[in-house]
Design a protein around this nucleic acid. Structure first.
Lengths: 340, 340
DNA sequence: TCTGGCACTCGGATAATCGGAGTGCCAACT
DNA sequence: AGTTGGCACTCCGATTATCCGAGTGCCAGA
């Protein structure tokens, strides 16, 4: 029995509560929003909404506060994404276009997102696992020391140092370079790692040892998903605006240190849809007072990572959702450009 | 007129206050520390110490609290570095030895330092400006696209993508590679950037344009001191233990977002000595309630960056100082190893 | 179904009270 | 001269009591 006016009331409650951070009563509601009915009517609706579990009364004779379920309904049925202003769009464009490399894109995104939403922003570094090998470079630093550089399609560059047991001459290294590139260029890294494993058997015996060493670090670098688990965090200072320190700030502050936790929060579901996780809906009971607005990013439905914001359940969902989506789109576009 | 016993009293006050976070009175002092005198005597000493400005009384009929000046005296005259336990030493060694690359060293250091001190840790990334060029690699991705890779003596690798106006063939690229390496290998990057500027004039005319483009991004990368200004921060969750949110936590939280501020806190003085900045001694009045324990690091007096911890003025100086120094030494050693 | 009226509730802000830790000072002692 | 015990005094902070008003639920009338 949730008719249109009740929904309006719920919307008004959510908006007011988000703005004032205080339980909202029937009278104030009617005044601030132009609902064309009397406080008494609103009270009746409120009672009904409370029966359904959408709002909650901290104590008798206090105003109402939305429950997680109420926020959920608000987000699902009532929230239209707040359109980004021209200034905001331009800020996104100019800031992100100025990025010089992949890490820079991530760092700028985090900063941007936290400034736009005035909340804590989290951006996952693009995963390696789905990218392909663009090029492998072998640089001899000394006769027994080779710098192995792995360039991926996402623009990420991984480098490793290899110590060889025996010196290797430049021409041999050149041959090896050709060989590794032939086997792996354009191939997804998982497949490339597998293909490379057989390579040392195919080269001249006197090169086999060096090849083995080099292939070793290469496959290690390819299967090293360390960077899959890396995230950038920004806007922590926004936590200072939170009201309740012990229930809201402290657990979140602790979670922010644990990148694994953050990844789970973002939801590595692999989908690129904009998702909103409200309070207890999330995976951690300590974070029952916080919500997450997140989405995947990556060129054309090709999921490379996730980004989003974390804040109190009482947060500006329409604004956050719009900002998250806008930034994700822009990041996706940039990653696409670097990848033709 | 600060005799030995008064110093003992000061030490006792600092230690107690750091431990309990509450103003300490004469009676409690005598009980907890084995000073062989009566409370009345201690009171006299306290009055004297207060006259000199080393301690302060929040209000009549309250215990005493050290002032910044008191902490200063404590650190200068009274603090002996708390030796690291064997377990701690081993933790440092194993954690840092496991690092795979430079960024990893920095990130692990931050984590380590914050865990050892249970405070907010800050580690500056090693500066580029004092390192030398180890090698420059040019990789042709497509005929008009070249990946420029700059390998520095510290182990840092910078990469940039260059779009050329005209295609370049591999042999030309190889020539260029030799040329840029001859001019810059082993040279400090500032000098290398200068030397490279003239290079395009010396090559064959048909290569000049490509050379110009490549040298352009190289010098840009060399003079890009962005990474000089990068810092890693960890242990923010430790802020949760702070007592006073508004005067201590909030300003610090804000400062932690501003990496420039952090660098100033660490004090880019260029010296490698262990320095302690107490409260108002620091450069920011908003951070009057926080102290910084920092030191430079780098192989053999060769300053590459700074690291340290930030905390409330009421902090465990001996412990923090010892931890900071221990980590700095270990990091220096590791950087040295990678650099023979 | 909505509205105005009305008695009632209860949290939080304000004021009042009280205990105790801590001080400063002084006279006596070593 | 330095140290000590005694003592009156201060003042914070915790505890309790008081009070105001926003907000509610319910009911009778439109």
């Amino acid at each position: 029995m949730v008719d249109d006016r009740k929904l309006d009331v719920l919307r008004a409650i959510v908006e007011d509560y988000v703005a004032t951070e205080e339980p909202v009563g029937s009278k104030a509601l009617v005044e601030r929003h132009g609902l064309g009915v009397s406080p008494a009517t609103v009270r009746n609706d409120m009672a009904a909404l409370e029966d359904e579990g959408y709002i909650h009364q901290p104590h008798t004779s206090a105003g109402r506060v939305p429950t997680d379920k109420g926020y959920r309904l608000f987000v699902d049925k009532l929230a239209t994404l707040k359109p980004m202003s021209v200034a905001e769009r331009r800020a996104i464009a100019t800031l992100l276009d100025g990025a010089v490399d992949l890490d820079d894109v991530v760092q700028r995104s985090v900063r941007l997102l936290s400034q736009l939403t005035r909340q804590v922003a989290i951006v996952q570094y693009p995963t390696l696992s789905r990218s392909t090998v663009r090029h492998i470079e072998l640089v001899s630093l000394t006769p027994t020391r080779v710098m192995v550089i792995l360039i991926l399609s996402t623009g990420r560059v991984e480098q490793r140092l290899v110590e060889l047991d025996a010196p290797v001459v430049d021409t041999d290294l050149a041959e090896l370079r050709v060989a590794v590139n032939q086997t792996s260029a354009g191939v997804q890294i998982a497949a490339a790692a597998a293909a490379l494993a057989d390579l040392p058997d195919g080269v001249r015996p006197e090169q086999a040892d060096s090849a083995r060493a080099i292939v070793g670090v290469l496959t290690e670098a390819m299967s090293d998903h360390r960077s899959d688990e890396r995230v950038a965090v920004g806007g922590t200072a926004n936590l200072a605006r939170y009201g309740d320190f012990d229930t809201a700030v402290r657990p979140l502050l602790e979670a922010l240190e644990e990148h694994v936790v953050l990844l789970k929060l973002l939801g590595e579901s692999g989908t690129d849809a904009l998702t909103v996780r409200i309070g207890h809906e999330g995976p951690y009971s300590e974070l029952a007072a916080t919500s997450v607005v997140a989405t995947g990013y990556g060129p054309q439905e090709f999921h490379l990572g996730s980004l989003g914001v974390v804040g109190p359940t009482r947060m500006d969902y329409p604004g956050s959702m719009a900002a998250v989506r806008a930034v994700a789109r822009y990041v996706s576009r940039i990653l696409d450009e670097g990848n033709q």
